[in-house]
């Protein structure tokens, strides 16, 4: 009985119409809180002290680090969605993976560009191919582009969903490589300084602006993701209704 109730609740949540209603109610709030967090985060980022070694370029960290975190988090969301597609055939799982791919590509692009703009004045080089962190993030960017192309290349939606889900899960191996590359190999990129077993190594005057900006970026991602999912559900409805109209006319 309890299992049935839980199953019914899961089925209800998996319902696209229910998702549209719920997301429609929460999105205005998410948009407002995201804007507020960005205002506070940017104020904190530009009033935080300059680093004694990096000088003013430390301010790039407040957008580079959240963008890099999101590039990996977005792929993790896609991997969870891929499991939902392959194992449970969740109606929203494929919608979620498809909607997340362009957003993930954009944040990965930002991580690469802002990292490069930080690297030139600090390292004296825009890019270093021998660096495992830089190269693995670039591979992630190529994977996002490849997935977007794959989704668009297969006309049958259910076949595209299954193939994309398999490729996403295979590509997930790159996420731990990105995360631990700075520990496994001797790289130019500095090691983790926030998520560490012995606690953050950044001074609180720079850590708090970074955390607020990370929260703002994360909420921005979910706001964009939910909005893109709504558009994708409507796109599928339009497609289905056009097929019905064509069948009725034939």
């Amino acid at each position: 009985m309890t299992t049935t109730t839980a199953g019914n609740a899961f089925t209800n949540l998996a319902n696209p119409t229910r998702f549209l209603n719920l997301s429609g109610a929460v999105l205005p709030w998410m948009t407002g809180i995201t804007a507020l967090l960005f205002a506070v985060g940017l104020f904190m980022a530009f009033t935080a002290p300059e680093d004694y070694q990096q000088g003013v370029t430390v301010r790039i960290m407040y957008i580079h680090v959240p963008a890099a975190w999101l590039s990996m988090m977005c792929y993790t969301v896609m991997a969870i969605s891929a499991i939902g597609t392959l194992v449970w055939r969740h109606p929203l799982a494929d919608v979620s993976a498809k909607a997340a791919a362009p957003i993930g590509a954009a944040f990965t692009f930002l991580a690469l560009v802002t990292g490069s703009l930080w690297g030139k004045p600090m390292w004296g080089a825009w890019w270093a191919w021998g660096d495992a962190r830089l190269t693995s993030v670039f591979v992630l960017f190529l994977m996002y582009l490849g997935l977007i192309a794959l989704i668009r290349a297969i006309p049958d939606p259910s076949r595209a969903a299954r193939l994309t889900a398999i490729v996403i899960l295979v590509g997930f191996v790159n996420i731990p490589i990105i995360k631990f590359s700075v520990e496994w190999w001797n790289t130019l990129h500095q090691p983790a300084s926030v998520i560490r077993l012995d606690g953050p190594s950044i001074h609180p005057s720079m850590l708090y602006p970074l955390l607020v900006m990370a929260l703002a970026f994360t909420l921005l991602f979910f706001t964009l993701h939910f909005s893109a999912m709504r558009a994708e559900i409507w796109r599928r409805r339009v497609s289905s209704m056009r097929r019905r109209a064509a069948q009725a006319a034939a």
Partner: peptide, 19 residues
């Protein structure tokens, strides 16, 4: 170095606005 910071924030703003 200010130019690098301005470029980083400018490009980020453009990409997020486009998204």
């Amino acid at each position: 170095h200010d130019v690098y910071v301005a470029l980083a924030y400018g490009i980020t703003a453009i990409v997020i606005a486009a998204l």
